[in-house]
Write a protein that binds this DNA or RNA. Structure first.
Length: 279
DNA sequence: ATCCAGGCATGCA
DNA sequence: TGCATGCCTGGA
């Protein structure tokens, strides 16, 4: 059991219910969250505005993983200040205060966002839980049953038909292909920036939006500004005078407006647009 | 009963 | 470069 104290506000519920990550759940209305972190289950409890209590079924070597996962080294207060580029963004930063990004596992993140297209959060969560329950390692923690996310090797024998039976729909072919090609993808020299983004988009089923999400949430490139329908509606309403605009132009403006912290800005806006703005 | 989701691939101008 | 269409499936 360890306490982690932040100088800024850390809001567990905002962070884990904002839709960036799908397999963390609260059983007590947002005070405590359980979920998988690579090889273990972690429990996060909100003690006060600045403090989390953290435990795990496997406490050895936990804190370095937690620091990376919760992005503790990000200077949250200056990020907030930096994305307050106008009165609207000031309001949004205030409304979403305490919402942090997390650094996800790339493999799980890629599968999550491949599944996300033309779907919704409950269904994506259901698909991922189903996959984990069938092929992930089972862990008992706090007298509850949890499942880690399956490793690539565990999923390798499966084909498109298996994933269709799990309810993945037309995304089944993307998942099957991704799992099969994953090693080859990783073997390529790791690139950065737009080059890496283009490399992600070479993968069957990954276009601009999903590539941006994987690069942002799975690889921690905070300069990305993924444009989904919520961001699209918001940006057109407030920054393009209501005029129909291509996602490429919206993405480009978002990255220009928010620079190295565009990923944070995107998540603040996404949360605000879904919960507070009538668009 | 249609209709459409937190897109993508494909085909076409 | 931009636009149209089909894709699985479950919930409104």
């Amino acid at each position: 059991m360890v306490e982690l104290v932040f100088s800024e506000t850390y809001d567990l519920a905002h962070t884990f219910d904002c839709g960036q990550i799908f397999r963390f759940h609260s059983s007590d209305n947002g005070k405590t969250y359980y979920g998988p972190l690579s090889d273990r289950i972690i429990k996060l409890t909100q003690i006060d505005e600045h403090t989390l209590e953290i435990s795990s079924d496997q406490p050895e070597g936990l804190m370095p993983k937690i620091h990376e996962f919760l992005r503790v080294k990000d200077d949250y207060l200056s990020i907030q200040n930096s994305v307050k580029v106008d009165p609207l963004m000031e309001k949004i930063v205030q409304q979403t205060n305490g919402l942090h990004l997390v650094k996800q596992d790339p493999f799980e993140c890629a599968i999550s966002y491949l599944l996300s297209q033309c779907s919704n959060i409950p269904r994506i969560t259901q698909n991922l839980s189903h996959l984990s329950e069938m092929f992930g390692k089972r862990i008992i923690f706090d007298k509850q049953i949890f499942y880690l996310f399956p490793k690539r090797e565990d999923l390798l024998p499966l084909g498109e038909d298996d994933f269709r039976e799990m309810g993945f729909g037309y995304r089944a072919k993307y998942i099957a292909s991704f799992i099969h090609d994953y090693l080859q993808f990783l073997r390529k020299p790791k690139k950065k920036g737009e080059e890496f983004n283009n490399q992600l988009q070479q993968i069957y089923g990954i276009g601009q939006k999903v590539a941006d999400c994987i690069q942002l949430f799975g690889y921690g490139d905070l300069t990305l500004f993924p444009v989904d329908t919520w961001i699209q509606k918001f940006m057109i309403k407030y920054y393009f005078s209501g005029k129909k605009t291509s996602n490429a132009k919206i993405r480009s403006l978002g990255r220009q407006m928010f620079g190295q912290w565009a990923g944070y800005a995107q998540e603040f806006i996404f949360h605000y647009a879904r919960h507070y703005d009538n668009i």
